[in-house]
């Protein structure tokens, strides 16, 4: 699949330090749910798409999803890169020792042998590092996404990992910079659509969900965000036979405290889902940090009863 001519150096990102959690992600796997395989993919899909668009990559090219910074990589071959998602302080050190800062959501040249370091983002949680040509590790079931729940997909990059870069696409980057809003650091508003199981809760539960903020607890990861706030009371006892789950589902276990399902959510689940966060707001939720507050609001056209 390489478009490189013979003799050209193999282009790659060499991982020097992965930070707390770095994974390879794209837009995930489709058409395998019936085999128990979840979608996975970038937690903030909009950010991954933007990074790829900046580099004229296909929107679903594989990138690195970097949680709370800390990533250090060296370029093998001349590369063009872009950082999106949570803005973090980033520097490039050239082989001759010169250092410069790297802009957010902009097209940056990473010359052969240069090192890129990402600091901790002051706001937001997940930064995306895209490279022109995409990260070219082998696909698993049609995707290069790492699913941390099922273990499918490429291994987590570690110090010493060499991540090959694919051939550059025919198109050239059209813009040097994309103006993007900063991730919100205060209260995050998330639109929800009631159901499919809001009838398993008391009539006031949906209103309670939307009345006061919930706090993002530290027990949050790519599978889901556990929230703490108003307790959602069930109107029915009994077990719900396991059923298919969607991205953004607010699943409510017996504790009454909802979990918001993110990219690596289980394919099926046995607790009722009171409401589902709208797709583009799932991206925003994926940037919420532990301790941050989120507040739900009914999406336009929906009512409490």
């Amino acid at each position: 699949m390489s478009g490189a001519t013979a003799g050209e150096p193999r282009r790659a990102l060499v991982v020097l330090a992965p930070g707390p959690l770095t994974t390879v992600q794209d837009l995930g796997r489709r058409r395998h749910s019936h085999l128990g395989v979840g979608r996975s993919g970038a937690a903030d899909r909009g950010a991954l798409r933007l990074a790829n668009r900046l580099l004229a990559n296909p929107e679903d090219a594989a990138c690195l999803e970097v949680t709370l910074g800390g990533l250090k990589v060296r370029a093998a071959g001349d590369l063009l890169v872009a950082l999106t998602g949570a803005p973090c302080p980033a520097t490039v050190t050239s082989p001759d020792g010169r250092m410069r800062g790297v802009g957010h959501a902009s097209v940056e040249h990473l010359p052969d042998g240069a090192t890129l370091r990402l600091g901790v983002p002051p706001r937001g949680l997940r930064t995306y590092l895209a490279v022109r040509g995409g990260i070219d590790v082998p696909e698993v079931l049609g995707s290069r996404a790492t699913d941390l729940l099922s273990g499918l997909g490429p291994a987590r990059p570690a110090a010493g990992s060499v991540l090959p870069v694919g051939p550059a696409p025919a198109a050239f980057p059209a813009a040097d910079l994309a103006p993007v809003p900063e991730p919100e650091s205060g209260l995050l508003m998330l639109d929800v659509i009631p159901g499919p199981r809001h009838d398993w809760f008391t009539p006031g539960a949906l209103a309670a969900l939307c009345a006061e903020p919930y706090e993002v607890t530290p027990h949050s990861d790519r599978v889901g965000m556990r929230l703490r706030g108003p307790r959602l009371e069930r109107a029915r006892d009994g077990e719900l036979p396991s059923e298919g789950m969607v991205l953004g589902a607010l699943q409510v276990p017996p504790s009454g405290q909802p979990t918001l399902f993110l990219a690596d959510h289980p394919v099926t689940g046995g607790y009722p889902v009171i409401a589902v966060v709208r797709d583009h707001h799932v991206d925003r939720a994926a940037q919420a940090r532990p301790g941050q507050q989120v507040r739900f609001r009914l999406a336009d056209g929906h009512r409490f009863h």
């Binding site: 489709r30 058409r31 395998h32 749910s33 019936h34 979608r39 036979p241 396991s242 059923e243 298919g244 394919v267 099926t268």
Partner: peptide, 8 residues
């Protein structure tokens, strides 16, 4: 995607 389960 189609996700069959016990009753759904």
């Amino acid at each position: 995607d189609l996700v069959p389960a016990a009753r759904t």
